[in-house]
Simulated assay, not measured.
Amino acid sequence: MIRPKLAEFKLMFLMMAVFTTVAIGFWQAFDQPFYLINFAIIGLSISLGMGLWPLLPRDKKPWARRLSQVLVGGYLFFGLGCGLIYLSFGVIVPENMEIEGFWFMVFAGVFQAAAIHYFVAKIVGPIFFNRGWCGWACWTAAVLDLLPWKMSPGRVPGRWGHLRYLHFALALGLVASLVFIFGYTVESQHGIVIYKEAIQTDTPQYTSMFMIPEMWWFLIGNLLYFGSGIVLAVVLKDNRAFCKYVCPIVGFLKPSASVSMTRIAPKNDRCTRCTKCTVNCPMDIDVMRYVQEGKPVLSTECVLCLTCTSVCPEEVLGTKMGPSLSSSDYLRVIKPASKRSAQQAHQPDSQTAV
Rank of each mutant, 00 (worst) to 15 (best):
A7F: 04
F129H: 05
M321Q: 14
Q32E: 15
I264T: 14
V333H: 04
H346K: 15
G49M: 02
L6V: 15
A7Y: 07
S208H: 10
Y165Q: 08
M288Y: 03
V235W: 11
Q347M: 13
W160H: 07
T275D: 14
E293N: 11
A337F: 14
Q292T: 07
Q292V: 06
T309M: 10
L253M: 15
K5R: 15
V303S: 03
D59H: 12
A198K: 06
S350Q: 15
G158P: 06
G229C: 07
R131H: 11
P248F: 09
F34P: 01
L174I: 15
R164Y: 02
A265Q: 04
M215I: 02
R65L: 07
T20I: 07
P213M: 10
E95Y: 05
G229R: 08
T307N: 10
V333P: 04
C243M: 09
M209V: 14
G251F: 04
P266G: 07
E197C: 00
R131P: 01
R65H: 01
L76M: 15
S260D: 06
G49V: 06
R66D: 07
F180W: 15
T272E: 13
K10W: 14
F111P: 02
L219G: 08
M211G: 13
F30N: 06
S326C: 02
F89H: 13
L304I: 00
A337Y: 12
S88M: 09
I92T: 09
L147Q: 08
V175Q: 03
C277Y: 06
G125C: 03
D286P: 00
I85C: 10
T185N: 10
V279F: 11
A233Y: 05
A241F: 02
Y330P: 02
D269M: 03
F30V: 06
I194T: 13
L223M: 13
T262M: 12
G79S: 03
K122R: 09
L55Q: 01
V311D: 04
P4Q: 12
K10H: 15
V106G: 02
L48T: 09
Y118T: 05
R65S: 09
P148D: 05
S68W: 01
Q347C: 09
G81K: 10
C281G: 03
R164A: 08
F39D: 02
I181K: 10
